[in-house]
Design a protein around this nucleic acid. Structure first.
Lengths: 199, 199
DNA sequence: ACCTGAACACCGTTCAAGT
DNA sequence: ACCTGAACACCGTTCAAGT
């Protein structure tokens, strides 16, 4: 493939941190985290890989931090009307979908990268509970428990537990649609367990 | 460093899958997942990196699968006496410690690798609940919820949320030992929320 | 200021060869 | 059967150079 750098360089929309992160997320969603390399990212941006370092001086580390921030920082609506149970149920559903849509970054969310992303989310959950009348200590525990559950459940879900499906099929005979786990229903049920346990 | 291959090769305990996995886990625990390379693992085993492929034909993929199996496959004691709540509380405490002791492999547990490891653990939780008199459907939900919570909480804990500690310090004034989060207490409290929600 | 191109020190893995 | 050594196709990153 032949390039015409000087011509392309002028007609291209310039590089930006925003565009780099979004392109990287697109690669991870489409091909997996293992195929996200600086060189491939450069190709997708129609730029030499080394140009990325001008916008992200800390290199790939900073790129991965940006991905985590982009998917894990999704706070609950602290000004929403209604019971806190409903507000948190709605948040949890959205957050789960977000994590599943970008399952490739889940391992990064779990690693130490980018403390701020999850902390903002955690603070919003605590705020919803406090405004709903839950005591300070119980709110801190519940916020942590809820976020832990949502992340942990998403992790189990992503792994796709084929054997779990097989076990359910054996236990339930031939009823239903063939024994496949209904993840939506199971998530909602587990969410009920968690929210129902908050005092 | 000069080697004497023929002499060393004879005096060394031979390579085995067991020894390879354990040495790899030692590297991950001590230096982090990012520093686990086939060449470094070979050095630690006092062997050329390529010798590992003779025991793990699928290479690094198989090595990582082995690490997950080694830490994530820790089923509950299905024949334990006492209330199921106490059995599961004990299991959860042990499993959490296991995950925290090998925090470097948590990202691997979260990824698709090795479905069998978590499935065996999940089945044991369901069995404890069923023997305790919980209905089939509720047991499946509770097992999933519990495992999800323990993994998710461990993930939050590993990230060490420094900002969370700062927020708690502001909210609580100068009481206690300086406002640091008591992770043990928080884990137990969250566990109470989850177990208390099971019908 | 923004991007390129060559170079460096690594990776995982294959493959022929040794014992 | 078990291990070695060279080789291949990649990595992330630095650095001098171009515009």
């Amino acid at each position: 493939m032949v390039r015409q750098p000087s011509i392309n360089a002028q007609n291209r929309t310039p590089l930006s941190t925003e565009r780099i992160i979004e392109t990287a997320l697109h690669i991870v969603d489409g091909q997996g985290l293992g195929r996200l390399t600086m060189r491939r990212l450069g190709d997708a941006l129609e730029v030499e890989a080394m140009a990325i370092y001008h916008h992200l001086p800390r290199g790939k580390e900073q790129l991965l931090d940006g991905l985590v921030a982009h998917v894990a920082a999704a706070p609950a609506d602290t000004s929403a009307a209604g019971r806190w149970q409903d507000v948190l149920r709605a948040w949890a559903g959205g957050y789960r979908e977000r994590l599943l849509a970008h399952a490739g970054v889940l391992p990064l969310v779990v690693t130490r990268r980018n403390p701020a992303a999850l902390t903002a989310t955690l603070a919003s959950l605590r705020e919803v509970l406090r405004r709903g009348g839950v005591a300070e200590d119980a709110a801190a525990v519940a916020a942590h428990t809820l976020l832990g559950y949502v992340i942990g459940h998403a992790a189990l879900e992503v792994r796709g537990t084929a054997e779990d499906g097989a076990a359910a099929r054996i236990a339930s005979g031939e009823g239903g649609e063939g024994g496949a786990v209904d993840w939506d229903a199971r998530f909602r049920a587990g969410l009920g367990v968690v929210l129902g346990g908050v005092r």
